[in-house]
Design a protein around this nucleic acid. Structure first.
Lengths: 155, 155
DNA sequence: AATTGTTATGTTATCACATAACATAACAAA
DNA sequence: TTTGTTATGTTATGTGATAACATAACAATT
């Protein structure tokens, strides 16, 4: 994807976020929007303190709680995801519909892809049902090499 | 499970660990064994510093690296698992054969169960294959309420 | 038994991630 | 304009993990 296209996607993602929040009657304040923008611009997993460093260039008074509060809001609204195995955060590709999170994390290029496999979802659900476990959240994170990196350097 | 039975299982788990390590030509040193014993005794997710506190009663000089080194070894040998969504560690039920980790974590009683669903495994594998992703590790962690807790208090 | 390479442990300091607690400010509804 | 609520500012600290370097234990030789 060309930089210009990516820029465009980011702008678009922010517009979608604006609309979603407006529709839900919640406030995407400037700080929250800035944090989301940072995550959208990179679209790589970023640690809270990485975000903080970038945020400081726009908001020098920013401190850890500033970032964590924004992240808390964005997570609640499904606009970003948390990657448990990296202690990191990434913006959501399509926040307009909720989905169980399934992530493929490339250890070479750092790209994070959302798998969204309905069949994985269904299979896991039925396994949970079979043993009487009432799930309220699930984490699926696979680390490895993405197709592009494998093709670039098949080793 | 009665305490006596649990005790027995713990002793058994340690013996199995001894044998596995001997067979592999690696050393289950006293420190490593003590950490494993602590995890087996509880068989709940425990943080590294929880383990450290208990370890100190036997080994007062223990410090964070003491625990983390033991955990590193035990993880390598498949004797314990790390729960990414809790930053915690738990002893493995059957270390004798390797398996992709799939955990059910009860938020009420804290029990951790290994799901080991072959169908989930297969479904995920084929989804990964379909998009050309070469996995080298995977995390599946489901948080919710176990059957026992649901039956005890259906709310 | 002495040498030597390797693996394990001891020790200090510090990094990285996250939140508690309390004060102030902005907002929105009456 | 008051009042309740939500958001932000600020300080400090809690929690999880590792870097870096020194020493000790072990195991395989000669």
């Amino acid at each position: 994807m060309k930089p210009s296209t990516c820029q465009k996607n980011c702008q678009n993602a922010l517009r979608v976020a604006d609309q979603l929040c407006q529709g839900r009657g919640v406030r995407l304040t400037p700080q929250r929007r800035q944090v989301l923008e940072i995550l959208c611009d990179h679209h790589k997993p970023m640690g809270a303190y990485d975000i903080l460093d970038l945020l400081k260039s726009e908001l020098p008074a920013a401190k850890p709680p500033t970032v964590y509060r924004a992240l808390e809001f964005l997570l609640e609204q499904g606009l970003v995801h948390r990657l448990e195995s990296l202690n990191a955060y990434v913006s959501c590709i399509h926040p307009e519909h909720p989905h169980a999170s399934q992530f493929l994390i490339c250890r070479d290029c750092g790209e994070v892809r959302e798998l969204e496999s309905r069949s994985v979802d269904r299979t896991l659900d039925s396994a949970l049902k079979a043993c009487g476990f009432a799930a309220d959240s699930q984490v699926i994170e696979v680390t490895g090499r993405c197709l592009r990196c494998t093709e670039r350097d098949p080793s």
